[in-house]
């Protein structure tokens, strides 16, 4: 063990980690993510998520969405500051976040609120729902353009600019969570702090472009 540690310098270790990460095929992530979402739904339908499965499932899908958004936002800082390259799976992370957001929205609409009139009332009158819906609308074009055809069609520069919409959407998501929480609670504040921190890491002093 000692010898291996001595041989593997930190950059070499990162190289190994990054090689391993690169070998994970994206389809596997899609399959695992979708299966996990389906598994939670199955649990909810069969009593595995407690006696009020609708709210529990809605909340779980929402929290997974936030977690995946956080992970997606961490990709660039991780590469830049820690040398860990999650780039090959960034699209899968984003698409899965959008998938769980859709599931969250569907559970809210169909199983929780159940009536279109009540949905409209919630969107218009309850600020936390308004904010959540705004976050969804910001992410909608991102979900629709997460494919090679769209990148090609839009051009890389435009595509990259469009996908910066995830920054405000992430903040809206965290504020949505804070606003729906009763009383003072740490968890939603921690999400907001992490998201703001990850966004702050992107702010760099202006310097001449080399590439």
């Amino acid at each position: 063990m000692m010898r291996r540690n001595q041989i593997l310098s930190r950059p070499a270790l990162m190289q190994r980690l990054n090689n391993a990460l690169r070998r994970i095929p994206p389809w596997l992530l899609y399959v695992l993510g979708a299966a996990y979402g389906g598994w939670l739904f199955y649990l909810a339908a069969t009593g595995g998520l407690g006696v009020e499965p609708i709210n529990t499932l809605e909340r779980l899908y929402g929290e997974i969405t936030l977690q995946l958004i956080v992970l997606g936002l961490a990709v660039t800082p991780l590469r830049r500051h820690a040398g860990v390259n999650l780039m090959p799976m960034r699209r899968a992370i984003g698409v899965l976040a959008f998938f769980f957001l859709g599931a969250h929205l569907l559970v809210w609409a169909v199983l929780d609120v159940q009536r279109v009139s009540a949905m409209w009332a919630d969107i218009l009158e309850r600020p936390y729902v308004t904010i959540g819906m705004a976050g969804f609308l910001l992410l909608l074009p991102l979900g629709l353009t997460s494919n090679n055809w769209a990148v090609h069609k839009l051009g890389a520069a435009t595509w990259r600019k469009l996908h910066k919409l995830v920054y405000p959407a992430a903040i809206l998501g965290a504020v949505h969570f804070i606003w729906l929480t009763k009383g003072f609670q740490w968890e939603p504040l921690i999400y907001l702090t992490i998201i703001l921190g990850l966004l702050a890491l992107r702010i760099r002093p202006a310097k001449p472009r080399i590439d």
Binding site: G47, V51, L57, E125, R126, Y128
Partner: peptide
Amino acid sequence: RWSQEFERRIGGGL
């Protein structure tokens, strides 16, 4: 934050 027009009885499942 919540309309109070309706409610959900615990135990009705998903």
